[in-house]
Design a protein around this nucleic acid. Structure first.
Lengths: 127, 127
DNA sequence: CTTGACCTTGACGCTGACGTCAACGTCTAT
DNA sequence: ATAGACGTTGACGTCAGCGTCAAGGTCAAG
């Protein structure tokens, strides 16, 4: 199939597919007229990339997963490199969650009127 | 004081201060030679901006707080516009936390080998 | 007079994952 | 032969908050 069909079936833009190729994530053989030609396996690769992006992975993070699929594994997450990325990502997400929780607490405290500068206004009503 | 001193005292770069001015957050009177001149109140404004940025606010979010301080209030969060931003931010943070938690769950599931895509292949389970 | 620390405006660089032209070639149908 | 639906490469635009030059003006000290 050509790039337009792959794009439609994968639910991405052709621009994205060319970008993935430029970043070395996917490759395409070329037909005589220079058009990119893809197979079913490529649809699989793109789907993997998309689902990884959807959970917050970068394209760089997705590389070992794509390599794993290309190496013939059933799942992109079956290889040790992929597992390492999973672990790292999990740690990153946990970090972000912790950060957000402490930010939330700070903002909530401010909103609750415990702001140190609000003492002058404290004698009245809250909304 | 001039821009360099304000920058040192506020712990920011001069570039940042000029950027804040360009964005309309702070202003400076000019001395005869064209140099920016700041007062103590400006240090207060910049500190407010910095602490807001530190908890994930954008410069745009910081505007009502700065306006509030300039209007003579003790705290930048004392004005209704600021409170509105607090509330909106709180909702945004909660959204992000929810998103991250669901991502975390997905990634953890993958890492545990219970990938949802594989479940369909095994038994037909869905969540 | 010259160094050097300070200031000015202007403008490009950076990060990620593309969107959106531009300008052009290819193939099919009418 | 011509429209138009597809493909190609190249390159700039987007979002935020600045960093980092470039090229120069100002001012006090030695």
């Amino acid at each position: 199939m050509r790039i337009g069909e792959l794009a439609r079936r994968a639910g991405v833009s052709t621009r994205a597919l060319r970008y993935y190729e430029q970043q070395g994530l996917i490759t395409a053989r070329r037909s005589a007229n220079g058009y990119r030609e893809y197979g079913e396996a490529d649809l699989r690769l793109v789907s993997e990339i998309r689902s990884l992006l959807a959970v917050g992975f970068t394209l760089d993070d997705a590389r070992p997963f794509v390599a794993c699929l290309r190496a013939g594994h059933e799942s992109g997450g079956a290889c040790p490199e992929s597992v390492a990325v999973y672990r790292r990502k999990l740690a990153e997400i946990d970090d972000e969650i912790r950060t957000l929780l402490s930010r939330r607490a700070e903002v909530a405290a401010q909103l609750a009127g415990t702001c140190t500068g609000c003492a002058a206004l404290r004698r009245g009503n809250e909304s």
